[in-house]
Design a protein around this nucleic acid. Structure first.
Length: 492
RNA sequence: CGGGAGGUAGUUCAGUCCGGUAGAAUACCUGGUUUGGGACCAGGGGGUCGCAGGUUCGAAUCCUGUCCUCCCGACCA
C-alpha cells in the first residue's frame, strides 16, 4: 500500500484531506456533508472524551441524555437563539413512508403522515433542556443543576470539511442552572479553564482564552468565552466555547426559583461545548508531511514494536524479548502493539505507523539482541536512538512524556512566532497577507468597524484575550481611541 | 446555494472528443525466496464504468435527470 500525501507547502487543504483519509481517521459517506469516523479516529475521540468526561465529573457535573428532536414551538422560544440557527436546521415533517404505487419496490413519503408540529433536529439542545429544567427547578435548593450530555447534533452546512465542519458531528454540551449571576459566570469561566487545561495538557495544543465580540457571540448568550488555537497554515480555529447565558433561556422557558427569602427570580444559565472538530485542530496543529503526529496522552496507540529477523530462530529470540518488554510497558500503563505480521516488511510498517502518528516505534533485530539494545524512534522529531533493553520500558515512559512536552513546546513556539502586533492599517494588511497568524491590534470596539475589517481582509476578531493588558491606542482602521488590543486572524 | 473540476478493480488513474468483447500500476489470494526505511519471482481472483432514465442493432463513451466528493465564492451561533 503505497501511501503518500500532498505536502503542506504544495496544498495545505489537500494535505489535510489526504491525511485524514490515509491515516484512517475518517471516510466520506453517502450522505452529503456527513462523515464516517473510522475506528482509529474514533479511538482518538474516545480518549479525548474520556479525559474530558473525567474533568467534568471532577468539577461536579453529571451526564444525562436529552432527545434528538426539538418541537419547533420549543425551538423558537428563545428568539435570538432560534434565529441564529434557523438557516441550518434539518426538520422532520413526516413520520411514515409507504410503497410507491407508481414505482414498484420504491418508497415515498406518506402524505397522510404529516406531523402536526414539525420537529427540529437539534443544532444544540438549550431549548429542549430548558423546557425540561422548568420541571426540575422550584427553589434554590434545586440549584445548581450541573448536567452534561455527549451527543450528536446537526447543522446543515453548505460547505463541509472532514472534522472541521460537517453536517452532523459529535460533541458534548454542558447545561447548567444557577441561583446567582456570579455563580453562573464563575461556572462559565471554570469550564473555559477546563477546556484550556485539556487542550494544553492532553492535546498539547496551546490556546488563547478570551471573550468573543458581540458579532461573534453565541446567539442567546450574554457573553461567549472561547479558546482559540493557531494552525500551521496561520489560520485560527475556535477549539471550544463556554457561554454565560444570563437569564435569557430562563425567561424564554419561564424557569423561576424561590430564593432563601422566598422571592421568585429567573434562573441563571451557562452552556459549554467542544466537538469532534478538536480532532481537526489536533491534526492541523502537530502533523507533518509524513502523516499524523499525535500527543502520547491521547494517541490510540502509544508504542509499536516491529521485529526485524531472518528465519524462525531469530524471530523466536526476538519474540521472547518483546514479550518481556510488552509486559513491562503494559504494567506501566502504556498502550503497545507488537506488529509481527510477516506479510509486511519493516520499511512498510515504519511508514505506516508514521502515517498514523504512533508516538514511539521500537525496532528490534538480531543485531540489536546481540548488543542488548533496541532501536527507538520518536515520531515527533523522527530521531532514532539505540537504547539498552535493560530499563527500556522506563525510558520509553519518560520518552512519551518528553514527546508530549516537545509537541506542546513546538506548537507554542509556532504560536508565539506567529502572533504579531500591528499599529497601522498598512502594517495590519501586510501582516495578514505575508505572515498570517494572529495579529494583535487596537479596535475601537464597534461592530461596524469589526464588520468593515472583515469585509476588507477576511480577518475576524478571534477574541479579546482574558486578563488583557489595558493600554491607550488608536483603532487600526478608524484611528478612534481604544483601550486594548484584540486578536485578529483569518479563521476556520 | 452559485461557479469550476471530478466519480471506471480495494487504491491511484488511462480509455470518453470519434459508440463496437473493460485496461495499467499498485493492493489482494496461492506457492516460494525474503526481511535494518514502502521486497522479488511464478501463478490467480476481482469492476452491472456513481445511480436512474433516454437515443442506438450496440453506450464507460452521446442526451436528460439525480447523488457524492474536491477547489473558489456566498454562508458558517
Amino acid at each position: 500500500m503505497a501511501k503518500e500525501i500532498t505536502s503542506r507547502a504544495q496544498d495545505y487543504s489537500q494535505w489535510y484531506n489526504d491525511l485524514i483519509l490515509k491515516a484512517g481517521l475518517a471516510d466520506y459517506s453517502a450522505v452529503r456533508g456527513c462523515m464516517v469516523i473510522k475506528p482509529y479516529g474514533y479511538a482518538l475521540w474516545e480518549n479525548m472524551r474520556d479525559a474530558l468526561d473525567k474533568m467534568f465529573k471532577d468539577t461536579g457535573h453529571v451526564n444525562a441524555y436529552f432527545p434528538l428532536f426539538v418541537p419547533k414551538s420549543l425551538f423558537e422560544a428563545e428568539e435570538k437563539n432560534a434565529e441564529g440557527f434557523a438557516k441550518e436546521c434539518a426538520v422532520v415533517t413526516h413520520y411514515r413512508l409507504k410503497a410507491d404505487p407508481d414505482n414498484k419496490g420504491k418508497l415515498i413519503v406518506d402524505p397522510e403522515a404529516r406531523l402536526e408540529e414539525e420537529l427540529v433536529v437539534r443544532p444544540t439542545s438549550e431549548a429542549i433542556i430548558w423546557n425540561t429544567y422548568k420541571g426540575w427547578i422550584q427553589s434554590y435548593r434545586d440549584l445548581p443543576i450541573l448536567v452534561n450530555q455527549w451527543a450528536n447534533v446537526v447543522r446543515w452546512e453548505m460547505r463541509t470539511r472532514l472534522f472541521l465542519r460537517t453536517a452532523e458531528f459529535l460533541w458534548q454540551e454542558g447545561h447548567t442552572a444557577h441561583a446567582s449571576k456570579e455563580e453562573a459566570i464563575a461556572e462559565t469561566e471554570q469550564m473555559l479553564d477546563v477546556y484550556a487545561d485539556f487542550a494544553e495538557n492532553w492535546m498539547a495544543l496551546p490556546v488563547v482564552k478570551g471573550v468573543k465580540t458581540p458579532n461573534e457571540r453565541f446567539a442567546g448568550a450574554e457573553d461567549t468565552y472561547c479558546i482559540e488555537a493557531l494552525m500551521q497554515d496561520g489560520k485560527a480555529l475556535q477549539a471550544g466555547t463556554s457561554h454565560f447565558l444570563g437569564q435569557n433561556f430562563a425567561k424564554a422557558f419561564d424557569v423561576k426559583f424561590s430564593d432563601k427569602n422566598n422571592k421568585l427570580d429567573y434562573v441563571w444559565a451557562t452552556s459549554w461545548g467542544v466537538s469532534t472538530r478538536l480532532i481537526g485542530a489536533l491534526v492541523m496543529a502537530h502533523s507533518d508531511d509524513d502523516g499524523l503526529v499525535l500527543p502520547p496522552k491521547i494517541a490510540p496507540l502509544q508504542v509499536v514494536i516491529v521485529p526485524i529477523y531472518k528465519g524462525e530462530e531469530q524471530k523466536a529470540a526476538i519474540d521472547a524479548k518483546v514479550n518481556e518488554l510488552m509486559k513491562q510497558l503494559k504494567a506501566a500503563g502504556v498502550s503497545v502493539k507488537y506488529d509481527d505480521n510477516d506479510a509486511a516488511r519493516p520499511g512498510w510498517k515504519f511508514a505506516e505507523y508514521e502515517m498514523k502518528g504512533v508516538p514511539v516505534r521500537i525496532a528490534m533485530g538480531a543485531r540489536d539482541l546481540e548488543n542488548n539494545v533496541a532501536e527507538v524512534a520518536r515520531r515527533d522529531t523522527k530521531e532514532k536512538m539505540s537504547l539498552s533493553i535493560d530499563g527500556l520500558a522506563d525510558n520509553v515512559v519518560k520518552l512519551l512524556d518528553e514527546i508530549q512536552q516537545n509537541i506542546y513546546n513546538r506548537a507554542n513556539a509556532f504560536r508565539q512566532e506567529n502572533t504579531r502586533e500591528a499599529n497601522t492599517w498598512d502594517e495590519f494588511l501586510k501582516l495578514l497577507d505575508e505572515k498570517a497568524g494572529f495579529v494583535s491590534a487596537h479596535w475601537d470596539g464597534t461592530p461596524e468597524t469589526e464588520e468593515k475589517i472583515k469585509e476588507l481582509t477576511k480577518a475576524t476578531i478571534r477574541c479579546i484575550p482574558l486578563n488583557n493588558k489595558q493600554e491607550e491606542g488608536k483603532c487600526v482602521l478608524t484611528g478612534n481611541t481604544s483601550k486594548q488590543r484584540v486578536l485578529f486572524a483569518r479563521a476556520y
